[in-house]
Design a protein around this nucleic acid. Structure first.
Lengths: 304, 304
DNA sequence: GCGGCTCATGAAAGTAAGTTTCATCCGTGG
DNA sequence: CCACGGATGAAACTTACTTTCATGAGCCGC
């Protein structure tokens, strides 16, 4: 049974492991057991036979095969090969630092800083690796040609949405962001063909954002979703899906890293759009920079 | 042809490919054909099935197996895995990417993504490296003991300020952010001893933020500055200075990366504060997460 | 609650991949 | 010309992988 012919799905040239952990929540329980084994120790998994792995995951071979298909592989042998390659590439920096994990209770600030920065940087890098330039290109295209762009996001993703709106606005594109769902819904209802609606949700399950995006789609707008989970509800109503790659961690670090990853994606789209009309964008940026000049103080030496 | 005394059977840690080409001359003709294919394109060979490879080498599967044994492998699957790993390792890390520079005019989206992600990740890492844990510690201390915390920022830094405010609020600290200077000034005038004022400005020259911070200081509040430039005006009126380390680049990439670096610092402070009272912070986070539960949709399988 | 539905799951059947066996072939030296 | 030994591939065999299918659990509408 073909899962979903989404435009985004296939591309995971960057990290297979990252890709799998992103998909993890959308897998069935038995498949999750397999996935966890694989993510925990790719090299080891690559060495095992399918029966072996199935036994280790306390399930049947059939489930392992299903898992392979779920993450986009043809079958088990292919997964094995990819895992081996992946494992070889990431000669884990044997850093004593807490890699994907939680911050230990007794940690001092230096450790906290190292851990957060590491996770943040990783999320950014891995997001970039798994971003599909083709999909980005199409989104950029849509934005460039859009009559109006609306960006939706709630909570932490709201900041990102707002940031994106402000950026687009600054280079002369007509863009909106509404902190309030009611307003957003009303506005979405006024969208039409040629407009673009962007929904941002880390989990992909924020009903407010989904509803607004649905509304926008119903009116004929192009819909774009930005989420960490490629199979989450929001992806079902989006024409284009862009994913971040923040590892799932406990406490807050997952969500925090995800926000940075989202911003990175936003930046990419922004620069992509700006690059479409360099001259105009640059002029707009200069004018806007000039506008706040009087709000700056101090030495002539410092850039404005 | 001394083929039998295969003393070296065990490990060849250097390179499997090198190893194979080394004993190529000692192989039988048919095996040599296989070996040559493998050496020429390991990645490709790893993808083939044994029958496939045999056909390509114009020989039988049996010979391929014999070849595997000759080079010290248990069987074909093991060879495949090793080849995949080998091939992955020898793909040079793509450091040819545009490093610190601006985005070239003709860049395609893939390049743009790589450049932005690189700069962003770097900014985060370098910021963490140069952050002084001692200063952070003192800032955390001040925030933990504060009666009230106010965060100031304008423009892009406003997002960060707002994010910080929201984070602190979420773990039960009394924190404010004012998008409007007038309101901010008024509020700052009401600060007193034991309160904390945080000013965020990438350039360190934003007069609005500086003024408000000055006001706060005059009233006896502890002042903290977060900026990219350690000698900028804002640092003169701050009790504690935290710096980001976004490289100076042209166009927008500098400012964009700086924002991520600022967020990283904010995250560190936040976690530092939260760590001071784990139980309370965790409870607060759980409660607030629960509060938005009803705004989530979708499968029971997905985390809320 | 109760049928009907979907979906996850593993047992078992089926297929393909990998491995072994063995007969053949070919060259060499007696 | 025959005996020998090594190289080789066809075919038998084994193991690994894949598909099919029946079962049962949970969910939804009634």
């Amino acid at each position: 049974m073909a899962k979903s012919p989404k435009i985004s799905a296939s591309h995971e040239p960057g990290g297979l492991i990252v890709h799998i952990s992103g998909l993890l929540p959308s897998l069935s329980p038995a498949e999750q057991r397999v996935a966890r084994l694989v993510v925990a120790n790719p090299a080891d998994a690559a060495r095992r036979t399918i029966t072996d792995l199935a036994t280790a995951a306390e399930t049947s071979e059939a489930t392992v095969i299903r898992f392979c298909r779920s993450v986009g592989m043809d079958g088990y042998p292919q997964l094995r090969i990819r895992l081996a390659a992946e494992a070889a590439r990431r000669i884990e920096p044997p850093d004593a630092r807490v890699v994907g994990g939680d911050i230990p209770p007794g940690a001092d600030l230096a450790q906290i800083i190292a851990t957060i920065a590491f996770n943040d940087a990783r999320a950014v890098e891995e997001t970039a690796e798994q971003l599909d330039p083709a999909v980005c290109e199409q989104v950029v295209e849509a934005i460039v040609g859009a009559g109006r762009i609306e960006v939706y996001g709630a909570g932490a993703s709201g900041f990102v949405a707002s940031d994106f709106q402000q950026k687009l606005h600054r280079i002369g594109r007509i863009a909106f962001y509404f902190p309030d769902v009611h307003t957003a819904l009303t506005s979405a209802a006024l969208l039409g063909k040629g407009d673009v609606a962007v929904g941002i949700s880390h989990t992909g399950t924020t009903s407010d954002v989904i509803e607004v995006l649905e509304q926008a789609r119903a009116r004929g707008a192009v819909t774009v979703a930005l989420t960490n989970f490629p199979r989450s509800p929001i992806t079902e109503i989006a024409d284009y899906v862009l994913t971040t790659a923040a590892r799932e961690t406990t406490y807050r670090s997952g969500a925090m890293a995800s926000r940075l990853a989202q911003l990175t994606v936003v930046d990419c789209l922004f620069v992509g759009v700006a690059a479409r009309n360099r001259a105009r964008a640059r002029r707009a940026l200069e004018v806007t920079a000039e506008a706040v000049r009087t709000r700056r103080v101090g030495g002539s030496r410092r850039r404005s």
